[in-house]
Computed example of a mutant assay.
Amino acid sequence: MNSDLNKNPNAGNLLISEPFLQDENFVRSVVLLCENNEEGSFGLILNKPSILHLGELVEELSFLDNEVYVGGPVEQNTLHFIYFDENQLNGSVSIGKNMWYGGEYEELVEKLKLGIIPSEKVFFFIGYSGWGPKQLEEELNENTWIVCREDIDDLTLQNTEEDLWKVLLKNMGGEFKVLANYPLDPRLN
């Protein structure tokens, strides 16, 4: 695998778990990297839906039926969100073209109620994925993750959440396309 691709991932890049990763938290996962610096890294798993819906978790958003995803194994008592919009909420951090992480929660609720931000353009996560200083760099050097620098949009997430891992690898082509077809358990092949 080309290890140069795994150098210096930035916010907005995707971390695709290699097919042999056996950590139950990250098997066939796609993590949106939200921050990566000398203090550590954090991101959100995009393709791990929980059994919960937003209205069941947050009273002021009970009018929404959005699925909630498991963002990762860290602090699963926290709620995080990303959204796709041309305009930024106060306190949001840009992580891609018209893609934002977090921001002022009350402003988000108000804009969702008014339909200014359509609910299908907001994705909610319980917990997050985190790495200490240099930890992600070490995992990248061990080829635990494949860095995908492809831009994603809300339609990508809406239409491929279960197959996102496979779709992204196929789109990367070459050796990655071969990995996309690797069986979950090769002993059953």
Rank of each mutant, 00 (worst) to 15 (best):
E39A: 05
E39Q: 07
S41Y: 13
F42W: 09
F42D: 00
L44P: 03
L44D: 06
I45P: 05
I45G: 05
I45A: 10
I45C: 13
L46W: 14
L46F: 14
L46K: 13
N47F: 10
N47A: 11
K48S: 13
P49Q: 13
S50C: 02
L52A: 03
H53A: 04
H53Y: 14
L54T: 11
G55V: 05
G55P: 02
G55W: 00
L57A: 09
V58F: 01
V58R: 00
E59A: 06
E59D: 08
E60T: 01
L61S: 08
S62I: 07
S62E: 10
L64F: 03
L64I: 06
D65S: 12
D65R: 11
N66Q: 07
N66D: 03
V68N: 07
Y69A: 06
V70H: 13
G71S: 10
P73K: 01
P73C: 02
V74K: 01
V74N: 02
E75A: 12
E75L: 13
E75H: 10
E75Y: 09
N77P: 01
T78S: 15
T78L: 10
H80Q: 15
F81I: 11
F81P: 04
I82F: 14
I82E: 04
Y83F: 12
Y83A: 04
F84P: 04
F84T: 08
D85P: 00
E86R: 01
N87P: 00
N87D: 15
N87Y: 13
Q88E: 08
Q88Y: 03
Q88V: 13
Q88P: 01
L89N: 09
L89H: 11
G91R: 13
S92R: 07
I95P: 00
G96S: 02
G96N: 00
K97W: 03
M99G: 02
G102D: 09
G103H: 08
G103K: 06
G103I: 12
E104I: 11
E104H: 15
Y105I: 11
Y105E: 12
Y105S: 12
E106R: 11
E107N: 09
V109R: 06
V109F: 12
E110F: 14
L112W: 11
L114G: 09
G115Y: 00
I117P: 02
I117A: 09
I117K: 05
I117T: 10
